[in-house]
Amino acid sequence: MVGFHAVLTANKRLDLKRALSAMGTATPQLKVHIVAGLNVGLTRDEIIEILIQMAIYAGFPAALNGLFTAKDVFADHDMTARKENF
């Protein structure tokens, strides 16, 4: 069961990801918030969906930058998980 605080935090993270991807120039900050979103229970599909939806509001180039950033974060996240399993 997910606690109220985790749900509230996840919702705030969704808003931050939208805003940061819309800016298009906040890649380091977007990485931090994608990792935090994963840590509070957002799925990769949810994060990708958010970034795709931003194409409507921020333009396709900004959405693509966000997706490339997410791809990097997911790869780092997988590598960290593998190291922890050894």
Rank of each mutant, 00 (worst) to 15 (best):
G3R: 12
G3W: 07
G3A: 08
F4W: 12
H5I: 15
A6V: 11
V7F: 08
V7P: 01
V7H: 07
T9Y: 06
T9Q: 11
N11D: 06
N11E: 10
K12F: 07
K12C: 01
L14D: 07
L14T: 11
L16S: 10
R18M: 02
R18K: 07
L20N: 03
L20R: 03
S21K: 04
S21L: 04
S21P: 04
S21F: 04
A22I: 05
A22P: 04
M23F: 02
G24K: 08
T25H: 10
A26Y: 01
A26F: 01
T27C: 02
T27A: 10
P28E: 05
P28S: 01
Q29P: 06
K31S: 01
V32R: 12
V32K: 12
H33M: 10
H33D: 02
I34L: 13
I34A: 05
G37S: 13
G37Q: 05
G37P: 03
G37T: 07
G37R: 02
L38Q: 05
V40L: 08
V40Q: 03
V40G: 04
L42Q: 02
T43S: 11
T43K: 09
R44I: 14
D45F: 07
D45N: 11
E46A: 09
I47N: 03
I48M: 11
I48G: 03
I48L: 13
E49F: 00
E49P: 00
I50M: 00
L51W: 00
L51N: 00
I52N: 00
I56T: 01
I56G: 00
Y57R: 02
A58P: 00
G59C: 15
F60E: 02
F60V: 06
A62P: 05
A62W: 06
A63T: 01
A63I: 02
L64M: 13
G66W: 04
L67I: 13
L67N: 09
F68S: 04
T69K: 07
K71E: 15
D72N: 12
V73F: 06
F74A: 10
F74Q: 05
D76R: 11
D76F: 11
D76T: 08
D76Y: 12
H77M: 10
H77Q: 12
H77P: 03
D78I: 07
M79K: 13
R82F: 08
R82V: 04
R82G: 05
R82P: 03
K83E: 14
K83W: 15
K83A: 14
N85I: 11
N85R: 13
